[in-house]
């Protein structure tokens, strides 16, 4: 990369950063997310993972269905496990699944969208037809069916979310690639004999990367909520306690009838906070990538 291109890229990064800092929703979202990322990373320091094991919890002499204050920060569940420990370790699984599924979603969506927009012609119409079909298939039932057939583990959940939620990304990116393609400089460098790979790498990708980033940030909430719902419906990985899994166990084991609010409140608040944080960040990035939106919002 030439130093000129490097400078330009650095200038862009600085501009995005300044604009982001000036957006109050963006900063709030970032701060909230930062807190949860720290909690997830520092889980081993904050909570003893052995507490997730009912046998260990019983051996510790934990009480059952203890309300917050009477035992630990957030009380205990039907298996005497600390809800705080579940909350801390659950943040890891929920964030990981949300991010990993988003990476998959965005990868599929970007590849389909860029090929469709860049190559055009028959390939474009076939790919867009398929995209439209996937848009029509109800997303949650498809995820449920796939998860039921594939079996219950974290990787399948990630796969299922990735396979079901790429179409909107593909459509968005195709439109953007078409706009970029029409701009003069692509034609100019094509006439200089640039190959397709070069065009995509040097002209298309830099121009759609902002949009990809914004779209990815807005896709994370969908991934996290889908994971939560799938886990709640009993399709989650039995061996890893995500927030959705906590909600399922609370529901199945009668926390609601007992009014054991401490069992299901923290996990939901965690999901709400993380989803809201990603949404706020995503909308801010979207405004920066497409200034026209900023006026409309």
């Amino acid at each position: 990369m030439t130093s000129l291109a490097m400078q330009r890229r650095r200038a862009t990064a600085r501009r995005v950063l300044t604009q982001f800092r000036n957006s109050r929703p963006g900063v709030i979202g970032f701060a909230v997310l930062l807190v949860f990322v720290i909690v997830a990373l520092a889980a081993p320091l904050l909570a003893d993972v052995r507490e997730l094991n009912p046998v260990f919890a019983r051996a510790q002499g934990n009480p059952q269905w203890a309300a917050p204050g009477t035992f630990g920060v957030l009380g205990t569940d039907h298996l005497r496990r600390s809800v705080w420990v579940q909350f801390v370790w659950g943040s890891r699984v929920s964030l990981f699944v949300g991010l990993a599924a988003t990476v998959l979603t965005i990868s599929i969506g970007s590849v389909v969208g860029i090929i469709s927009g860049f190559v055009g012609g028959r390939i474009d119409s076939v790919l867009m037809r398929i995209t439209e079909w996937f848009l029509v298939i109800p997303f949650l039932p498809l995820a449920i069916v796939l998860a039921s057939i594939l079996g219950r583990n974290v990787w399948n959940i990630i796969l299922v979310i990735g396979v079901t939620s790429w179409p909107s990304t593909a459509r968005l990116l195709r439109a953007q690639v078409l706009t970029v393609k029409q701009r003069l400089f692509v034609d100019r460098s094509r006439s200089l004999g640039a190959g397709n790979a070069h065009l995509v790498a040097r002209h298309i990708l830099p121009n759609v990367s902002g949009l990809i980033l914004a779209n990815a940030t807005l896709a994370v909430p969908i991934s996290i909520l889908t994971e939560t719902t799938l886990s709640f419906l009993g399709l989650g990985d039995p061996s890893s306690a995500s927030w959705g899994k906590t909600l399922e166990e609370a529901f199945v084991n009668g926390a609601m009838v007992r009014n054991a609010w401490w069992y299901f409140l923290p996990a939901g608040v965690g999901i709400l906070a993380v989803v809201l944080a990603f949404t706020l960040i995503g909308r801010t990035l979207e405004e920066i990538a497409d200034p026209r939106l900023g006026q409309a919002r």
């Binding site: 609601m256 939901g268 709400l272 989803v275 809201l276």
Partner: peptide, 18 residues
């Protein structure tokens, strides 16, 4: 509306139910 939009719908249901 953004807050309601960002929470799992069934969790909202659980809270209302309790």
């Amino acid at each position: 509306t953004m807050v309601f939009y960002s929470m799992p719908d069934f969790w909202l249901g659980m809270i209302l139910l309790v």
